[in-house]
Design a protein around this nucleic acid. Structure first.
Length: 810
RNA sequence: GCGAGAGUGGUGGAACUGGUAGACACACUGGACUUAGGAUCCAGCUCCGGUUACGGAAUGGGAGUUCGACUCUCCCCUCUCGCACCA
């Protein structure tokens, strides 16, 4: 193997070597500093896509770099293997989800190996195996015992298409996050995790995660949504009832002129009962319950409501306020009741305009006069209180506190904090997931499956239903059981399975002792490896997965199983992989391979029409702007594929695919290859020059200085910012400088030494990025020790800092 | 509407704490080698004017701080992402 660079030959050779030598296998070593590098594990959907390639390439480069820096690197991989696509595919193909899943895992594992990623494959886990979910069930029981897991009947987001419940996090503007169909509300008994217990702590620690992108912590903060305000009770006129409201604007209580209850609010029905309004109210509530929460909350959605026929009394102003039920009041937030202050809240203003309700101005702006009859929109700014009794003249910001205290004194309200975050509903009426290890006994009620009976195996013979629905509930052999407490045969297993986000909330801990059988994980090993030093994945998990994982880590800490509460020290969210969309006027979206390049234009291979090259968007199968990694691997090999993914953009930015860019990367590797072989005979048996530049002269000296500058630049680009694109371009500069050396002229020993140093440096610096290529040349250059066991190169501190300086002196 | 980020040649992107704007690459142009090259090597390549020397303009637009601004401050425009009747 000399003249021509043959990536396939080089790569299969070194992949076989790595596999045999088990160099990526790690164990705890107290002598070495540990580094836990983790990439988000994939769902085994069938094949690896470019997003995976980018994500895992970034991770692999860091893992390999850290190893060369002497760290004990844990770099595991596994499969987020439960989930609905397996079930859907099984229904469509009349196969079993397990078969489909394991086949996909095999395919994808091969692809990952073909890309040369340095995983410790002995730690591989698949979350659909009983060895894994057994511990999830164990943890569920622990959580149940602590009251952290509980069951309640509640309205849930229901997707008719998927026939299952969705978490709030899985509803995107009224649509199912997975299939994009309308989500509606349904009342069901569901299991929940009490994540709200940790709302405050999760929020506070958002500011203690300096290694996370601010964008992500901001999104989490918004999601948790803490509001500071007050809860105030409004007595209902002619009744013993009172209505509690939550408000952040207790400074405007005197301006509250009516009350709005969510249609689901229990008082709506009871208050209107027997009044002439009853029929209208029932009709309204009925109509609203058919609509899903999210479409009811779209901005352009018209506010509407009906009068319940009853009044309540404003506890501060004494005003008699009509009680409405209104569509914009949400049962899930606060208390499900809103004190409406039309003069100072736009929603209340709109509602008051529509139904002819009074407005009372209570905050007077500093700079203008307002009149409640002529105002055209609510005034939400600051000002001085008016029409507010004893609080008149107070600045409204100060009044927030004073009024809250006054309410507490008079025992009609109290300061309160409200969170937008709600408990995590984890029940799914689906098959391919972890069974919830609970038994419903007629006599004892809810009984957890005892530890010795775990795991509750997901039965293989369940009949998947065409229209969805819960297959376990129809499987008598599964549901029928004996109560572990009283032995009664009148007991049934819970037939729900867990949300698949539960598996991914603790997999990073399991990797530390993946085959441990005496517990969820080996505590010592977890405490050695955790927390994850660097986590890498897509921003799409900014809220769901990352928040759940932070929550689980806290639960595990409170159970005494771990000693930390934040699982991920540093987080890198890599950008999307994009490509322009190509459409044919007759055939619609076209795959890249369906387009024929004909000179200046491109045409559709099917019909010959000229195609339209559209905007650059995230690669997606539906838009057909995808590149199959396999084609790249065949044509250019893993190293070029990896090189391009890193060179085209810094990791956190989106990457625009370019076939010519890939070609350029391939050329660059060939350029190094050719140079190395063209001077191989002169440098193979020479020691690299490592002396002072003062001993050299002319362009050889310049080259020598450049090598040191390059080592420094590449080291800092990788170490500090993961900016592989500039690291690569620095090496490209060095290679260009090498080409400036005349190899036809006689090569004296000094020159040979510098050339050897140059070539070896290039190879070492690129080795985390193009590992097979580097190994091959490293060995060809006469090095006995493999590159994996070689240290990262160091540079002379006395090398001039500036890269493009003409004054390259020491 | 709220929040975050971005805007630099024909294109992707450099310029880290203010100090030669456009590194590196893609595309393009020219040359060399050549039967040939879509391989390779060398060179050119922000825009305008000029044969050259050179001059002028330029980092979305406008102002400001500074000896000096892609970088800092303010206003405006555009785009991307996230949240969105949260009381």
């Amino acid at each position: 193997m000399a003249e021509k660079y043959d990536p396939n030959a080089v790569e299969s050779k070194w992949q076989a070597f790595w596999e045999k030598s088990k160099l990526f296998k790690v164990k705890e070593d107290p002598e070495k500093e540990k580094y836990y590098l983790l990439e988000m594990f994939p769902y085994p959907s069938g094949k690896i896509h470019m997003g995976h390639v980018r994500n895992y390439t970034i991770g692999d480069v860091i893992a390999r770099y850290k190893r060369m820096r002497g760290f004990n690197v844990l770099h595991p991989m596994g499969w987020d293997a439960f989930g609905m696509p397996a079930e859907n595919a099984a229904i469509a193909n009349k196969t079993h989800p397990a078969g489909w899943t394991y086949e996909n895992i095999d395919t994808m594992r091969l692809q990952l190996k073909r890309l040369g990623f340095s995983y410790d494959w002995e730690r591989e886990i698949a979350t659909c195996t009983p060895e894994y979910y057994r511990w999830e069930q164990w943890l569920f029981v622990k959580m149940y015992e602590k009251g952290m897991a509980y069951r309640k009947e509640s309205f849930v987001n229901w997707c008719d298409n998927c026939q299952t419940v969705l978490a709030n996090e899985q509803v995107e503007s009224g649509m199912c996050w997975r299939c994009s169909s309308q989500v509606r509300q349904k009342k069901l008994w569901q299991w929940f995790f009490r994540i709200t217990d940790y709302a405050e702590d999760l929020l506070v620690y958002c500011d203690k995660l300096p290694g996370w992108p601010e964008k992500v912590t901001t999104m989490q903060k918004n999601w948790i949504g803490k509001s500071i305000g007050a809860e105030i009770r409004f007595p209902v006129d002619n009744s013993k009832e009172s209505i509690a409201v939550f408000t952040t604007r207790q400074d405007t209580v005197f301006g509250a002129t009516f009350m709005c209850l969510a249609p689901e609010h229990p008082l709506v029905i009871s208050l209107s009962k027997g009044t002439p309004r009853e029929k209208d109210v029932l009709e309204f509530v009925e109509r609203m319950s058919g609509q899903d929460r999210s479409s009811r909350t779209l901005e352009n959605y018209e506010k509407e409501g009906v009068f319940t026929g009853m009044y309540c009394i404003n506890p501060l102003s004494g005003r008699r306020m009509p009680i409405y039920t209104a569509n914009f009041a949400l049962m899930e937030y606060g208390t499900g009741a809103v004190m409406s202050v039309p003069a100072h809240d736009q929603r209340d203003f709109d509602f008051a305009q529509k139904y002819g309700l009074d407005k009372v101005l209570v905050v007077k702006p500093y700079d203008k006069e307002l009149d409640s009859n002529s105002m055209t929109e609510a005034y939400t700014g600051e000002g001085v209180l008016v029409n507010s009794g004893r609080f008149d003249g107070l600045e409204n910001r100060k009044a927030l506190d004073e009024i809250a205290e006054y309410l507490e004194e008079k025992n009609i309200g109290k300061k309160t904090v409200s969170f937008r975050l709600r408990d995590w509903g984890i029940s799914r009426q689906r098959y391919w997931g972890t069974p919830i290890p609970m038994i419903h006994c007629k006599k004892c009620g809810m009984v957890p499956v005892p530890e010795k009976d775990l795991p509750v195996i997901l039965p293989e013979d369940a009949a998947l239903l065409e229209g969805g629905g819960s297959p376990l509930s129809t499987l008598d052999s599964f549901t029928r059981t004996v109560c572990p407490k009283c032995g009664s045969a009148d007991a049934k297993r819970d037939t729900d399975t867990m949300d698949t986000f539960v598996e991914s909330s603790w997999y990073f801990m399991r990797y530390c002792s993946p085959h441990f059988e005496d517990g969820i994980f080996d505590k010592n090993k977890v405490n050695y490896w955790m927390p994850v030093d660097q986590y890498i994945g897509g921003v799409e998990h900014a809220i769901l997965h990352l928040l759940y994982s932070r929550y689980f880590t806290r639960v595990l800490k409170d159970l005494g199983l771990v000693e930390f509460k934040e699982p991920f020290d540093r987080l890198l969210t890599q950008g999307m992989v994009c490509k322009e969309i190509v459409t044919c006027p007759r055939h619609g979206f076209l795959f890249p391979e369906e387009v024929e390049e004909t000179g200046a234009d491109s045409v559709c291979k099917k019909c010959g029409s000229q195609v339209v090259v559209g905007r650059v968007e995230k690669m997606s199968k539906s838009k057909k702007n995808v590149i199959d990694p396999n084609i790249l691997l065949e044509q250019y090999g893993a190293d070029t594929t990896r090189l391009f993914c890193l060179f085209a953009a810094p990791p956190e930015k989106s990457l625009e695919w370019s076939d010519q860019g890939v070609e350029g990367g391939y050329r660059f590797l060939n350029r190094i290859w050719r140079f190395t072989w063209s001077c191989m005979d002169s440098i193979k048996d020479v020691e690299p020059f490592e002396g002072s530049p003062g001993e050299l002269e002319g362009n050889v000296r310049e080259l020598y200085v450049k090598i040191h500058q390059t080592i420094k630049k590449v080291s800092s680009d990788i170490e500090e910012r993961f900016h592989f694109n500039t690291a690569i371009s620095a090496v490209m500069e060095l290679v260009n400088a090498m080409y400036a050396i005349d190899l036809k002229e006689k090569i004296d020993p000094a020159k040979a030494g510098v050339l050897k140093f140059a070539v070896q440096s290039v190879v070492l610096l690129l080795s985390p990025i193009v590992p097979h290529f580097a190994e091959e040349l490293w060995k060809a250059l006469g090095n006995e020790t493999g590159i994996l066991l070689t240290s990262w190169p160091s540079y002379r501190e006395d090398a001039p800092v500036k890269m493009h300086s003409n004054l390259m002196t020491f």
